[in-house]
């Protein structure tokens, strides 16, 4: 019993220590004299790796999720004779919830795990130590551009996801199942608010972007420099990011729409 409590206490302290260390890491990476000339090429490279390479999976997933929403929504709404509400249903589900959340989950799996593995491998092959010995701060050189790239790209990916998803819902609902074209868009427009839905969805995905990228970078930076260490860190990135995203989503939803 005492041993169990002690283990619980130990685990709690370890977690708090981890959060503290992660905060210090992020702080050191981002604070300091900005060097836009040096940063820009690095940032472009990371935007490519983190953003462009995640685009395809985001677009395809968005399209299919939108199509499924269209199909499921139609079968439910048609029973109430309310198939005109398909437009707002698809649009609101995507903009408020699925866009930010699914994008964040896919991003954690696609880009987050890659970031962790890459930085973990740089640690294992002593590239980070080597940077330090060359008087270059790896936090600012390696961590900072990746962080900004993640924070910039994820909301953009979420917009693409929602847009493609709504188009998928339109294809299934209107072109296949025969919901009226005009009603689909006009009812959607009268129910979707720029401020309430699109901006709030953007804020959500911005928060998720910070959290997921941060976890991925921290896990990579502190990974044990061995193959099991890196594989464990990669797994942890995906698990922790997913849990954090889903938990935060509830909190944010409660604040924004509650």
């Amino acid at each position: 019993m005492i041993a169990m409590l002690q283990r619980l206490g130990h685990a709690t302290l370890e977690n708090i220590r981890g959060v503290g260390a992660a905060s210090i890491m992020l702080f050191q990476a981002l604070v300091g004299k900005p060097q836009p000339l040096k940063m820009f090429p690095l940032l472009v490279r990371q935007l490519y790796v983190v953003g462009v390479q995640s685009m395809l999976i985001i677009l395809i997933s968005g399209l299919f999720i939108g199509m499924v929403l269209g199909l499921q929504g139609y079968t439910i709404l048609v029973d109430f004779g309310a198939e005109q509400a398909l437009g707002p249903m698809v649009a609101l589900s995507l903009l408020r919830e699925l866009g930010p959340v699914v994008t964040a989950l896919l991003f954690a799996g696609r880009a987050g795990s890659a970031l962790t593995a890459e930085i973990g491998l740089m640690r294992a092959t002593e590239q980070l130590s080597s940077l330090e010995m060359m008087a270059v701060d790896p936090l600012r050189r390696v961590v900072a551009p990746r962080f900004w790239a993640g924070v910039i790209t994820m909301p953009l990916l979420a917009f693409m996801f929602s847009a493609v998803g709504i188009y998928g819902g339109f294809m299934v609902g209107v072109q296949w199942l025969g919901v009226d074209d005009g009603a689909f868009w006009s009812v959607m427009q009268s129910n979707v608010e720029w401020q309430q839905d699109i901006i709030n969805g953007f804020i959500k995905s911005l928060v998720f972007a910070v959290v997921v990228t941060w976890i991925a970078l921290y896990k990579g930076y502190t990974a044990a420099p061995t193959s099991p260490g890196i594989s464990a860190a990669t797994t942890q990135t995906v698990v922790y990011s997913s849990l954090a995203v889903l938990g935060l989503d509830f909190v944010l939803t409660a604040i924004m729409f509650g």
Partner: peptide, 29 residues
Amino acid sequence: YETRKRMSMLFQSGALFSELTVFENVAFP
């Protein structure tokens, strides 16, 4: 960091940056 510019270290694995060419690796510092 100023002091480190006066010393350098050759790591066991070489620690070359894997995304840069040999030329760019040498040009890096």
